[in-house]
Design a protein around this nucleic acid. Structure first.
Lengths: 228, 228, 228, 228
DNA sequence: GATGAATGAGGTTTCATTCAT
DNA sequence: TATGAATGAAACCTCATTCAT
């Protein structure tokens, strides 16, 4: 349901600036976007740390100097890319919130959540990989991004689990926050390493099913009915 | 002048070679070990990618040239460090194998497995982090190491789950391989990001408990009795 | 559409030209002046060598391209600024010429000359500093400016000293040109380094007094009566 | 007169270090010295700001990387050069201290001081020019060097003037500190701009004589007897 | 065995400068 | 007139790596 009355002039990208502080015009924005796309492409093809400004620039058909007109370094370009994903990430929380987690519907929701994560990762693998990578390397900017990205889902799961606990579906000894953390970790990591797991002979659908089972059980405290 | 009386050809470690192919003597081995320790120390303090040969050498009180006498690059030194962990990693599989996964004992085993992973990570965080990092960057040598490291646990879990499935504790539609993959992913990732989760206000013991619950349920198909 | 009624061809300043050779109109002149002022401001705040075209342009609220419409480089802008001082510099020669250099009046003149130099430097320090700087770096344009600037005072002092020498106040062995050179050097350098000297604990008034004494003695060959 | 008993191991150069912290050996010191000499040569030939690391390295027959092994930047190399002059600079103070400043001897001392400054500048013009330059540009390291360099002479002059003042040769209203500052300024600046002055037709000997007259008068309060 | 020294190679940055609009 | 954009060119600086001792 859209919000028809509000936010008349919110720009999609919140005012990218050239390094000298000016807001780029049409042509500049095009160049910026081209650089961003090439950055994504480079990151897809090569290891993040091997992506050089020179390469991005060459790929985009410009010079390094031009790159520096829009981004202070490669990291910032990737960061810009990553921020685009943030919005999309909020969808996951919705999935969690808009279900009762009971019976077949509950399992269906779990299944959708798992699928959504897998697909999201497949679609944005290069950038998401860099986020994980930079986060483990201790980069604060990326860590914040990753945290805020996962936090919504985690919060939603935690609320759902808490409600179930109040309904007596979980023993009081279980910590909803801990469990939701475990689930989010699982989601993110399985999605990230899906290929590795598939190399072990695990079918994609089986993987999603296993994820869904864990989620459903951990949230609702119930075995899923016979599925898949 | 050679040293005729002392253990001439039995190197402590699995035959490390100097670059020129000769097996180092007592003094050389000491230097090698010192370099290894300093590598570990540097990796602990700095981001992996910022660890330079020069720094390790200086930290160890030698020169870069000496470093190259023992390792072709920083990666190899870390790899040597990482291989030491491999053996220790096999223990996890044992934990999984030597339990029936029934009743309170089963939950106890799950709890121990979770605890073991958490402790293992805490102890070897720097090196394990690099393994994860290099793996995501696509480094084959590290990926193999990681895979073989996790594969034992995964295999053991898979077998345990299969047995339970045969006993009728799991529906046939569930793929034991997929589920064990999900569990291993969860274990490794929660252990790796424990600090992040604790920043969200999750107590360490609650975390371990949540992990144990997931494992126990996923293996045995049963809710743990009221615990923790 | 031209502006038929307003002073079409009488530029305020000595015919500044835009790069394309055309004499700027009213709007252009305003821009030029703004650039000049910002140049002065930048030079005041930063080391001369760190003043970049881009910075001046941004400070003036225009673009580098506009700067180049009026000046071929930063140096030229500063030169334009410097030339404004040249006229004012001639006053010093007058001071020297319009006194008899005898008795208390003579000392008073010396004192005024010293004070005038100090004040002039205080007022135009940034530009004067650049003149000195560029001169030491061997820049011919600035050296000529500096020379012509000091030459008037030097010439006037030389004439005054010569007259005194003819009157027998100085031995024939003294070279008036050399002495006037020494005085001018002293004036310019003390004025330039006034702050440094004050850090050594020298009061401004004492400094001016010391300068005046040297000048008075060197010109008149007489000790000043007890003063200040 | 040497000091036979003390300081057995004081190194001439106060322990130059390579960038990595180690004290260079014989070969390294030779390279360092060569780089220093080439730096001096480059500074002599070109404007200071135009001296690039690449040029020095090429001139010295090495690579930029080697330069950076010994100096973090060109400035530091010049600073090393400049520090060598500091010691030599102390001689001037001695000249001032070891005379009574009375009669012909006094003038002789003034004359020597002037000559010493002129010769010192002639000999070390390139480096001294950079010191002045960098000082005016606001570089603290160079300013400190320059200050300490001149401070000895200034202090000695001030003491001499004070003694004369006590003897009644100067009115109480005269500030010895201010006067010594004026003298030092004059010495340094005339020496620096000697060429410029000579272009005005001032003979070198006349210049030195004029300087000496000013010094002698300012210190002793007396006209020099007929000289030169 | 160990290591001072030297350096090739390559990426990063910064600007002055130029056009097309 | 003014200026967004683009960029060539020139330094900078850092390391991994290699010898000769």
């Amino acid at each position: 349901m859209p919000e028809p009355t509000t936010s008349p002039a919110i720009p999609t990208e919140d005012e990218p600036r050239a390094v000298d502080g000016r807001v780029p015009g049409r042509r500049g924005m095009a160049t910026r976007r081209r650089l961003l796309e090439c950055t994504a492409a480079m990151v897809r093809r090569n290891a993040y740390r091997d992506v050089k400004v020179v390469d991005i620039a060459r790929e985009a058909g410009t010079s390094p100097a031009t790159f520096y007109q829009y981004f202070p370094d490669v990291e910032s370009a990737v960061l810009a890319l990553a921020e685009d994903l943030t919005e999309e990430g909020k969808r996951f929380a919705e999935l969690v919130t808009t279900t009762t987690w009971r019976g077949a519907d509950g399992f269906e929701a779990a299944n959708e959540l798992a699928g959504a994560y897998l697909r999201f990762w497949d679609e944005h693998r290069p950038v998401l990989k860099v986020i994980d990578l930079a986060t483990s390397e201790g980069d604060a900017r990326f860590r914040d991004l990753r945290t805020s990205f996962l936090a919504d889902t985690a919060q939603a799961l935690r609320d759902a689990i808490s409600r179930m606990q109040i309904d007596g579906r979980h023993p009081d000894s279980m910590d909803p926050a801990a469990m939701s953390g475990v689930l989010v970790s699982m989601l993110a990591n399985v999605a990230a390493h899906r290929r590795g797991l598939e190399e072990w002979g695990v079918a994609p659908s089986a993987l999603q099913d296993a994820m869904a089972r864990v989620i459903f059980w951990a949230v609702s405290g119930q075995k899923p009915r016979q599925t898949a």
